[in-house]
């Protein structure tokens, strides 16, 4: 059962990612990317990382992609007339990324010996366990992430302002 779910979600996510790259209309790209993110959230649920799945939906589908959609609508770019790169450039990019795929798969194929621990803790992805680790071992990076968010917020406001009085 789990492997069929995995294969279905994997096929759907790959197809919608391809659709995102190839669709002419940026709004369709955004919607297909949101669908890809939902498929990835399904993978997280399969991996018993429920908290990660919920945070993924909230942060990506709820915040980041809405921001993208909002900017697209604000700039009025929801047209099908996006200029394309030249055919030779597209073929070159296809060959280059195909080579990257072949290289990565060839380098990683068969070399993975993951020893699953016998007394594996199935509840590693639940809120209690993650919070325990986050607020003990990773409390300094957590605080630094807060500072990063503050800096990003200030930077976004500063960049977005129309004219800055000196």
């Amino acid at each position: 059962m789990a492997q069929y779910l995995f294969l279905t979600l994997a096929a759907l996510s790959i197809l919608s990612a391809l659709g995102m790259v190839f669709s002419r209309n940026p709004v369709h790209s955004v919607l297909l990317l949101i669908f890809t993110f939902f498929c990835i959230a399904g993978q997280y649920v399969l991996l018993n990382a429920q908290f990660l799945a919920v945070v993924h939906i909230i942060v990506y589908a709820g915040a980041i992609m809405v921001l993208f959609l909002f900017v697209l609508m604000l700039l009025n770019l929801n047209k099908d007339t996006e200029p394309q790169k030249s055919t030779i450039w597209r073929i070159t990019a296809g060959i280059a990324s195909g080579m990257l795929l072949v290289t990565l798969v060839g380098a990683l194929r068969g070399g993975l010996q993951v020893a699953v621990p016998e007394n594996a803790n199935v509840e590693v992805g639940l809120v209690e366990n993650l919070g325990q680790v986050l607020f003990t071992d990773f409390v300094v990076p957590f605080e630094i992430a807060g500072i990063l968010f503050l800096a990003a917020m200030v930077g976004a406001v500063l960049v977005g302002k129309r004219d800055i009085k000196a």
Partner: peptide
């Protein structure tokens, strides 16, 4: 996340949170 679950080690999933933080800041 996959390696985190297979090795039953929570650190991978914590790393995913930090990547999400960076992605959100980058998008903004």
């Amino acid at each position: 996340a996959a390696f985190s679950t297979y090795l039953s080690d929570a650190q991978g999933q914590i790393m995913v949170f930090f990547i999400m933080v960076v992605a959100a800041a980058e998008a903004a």
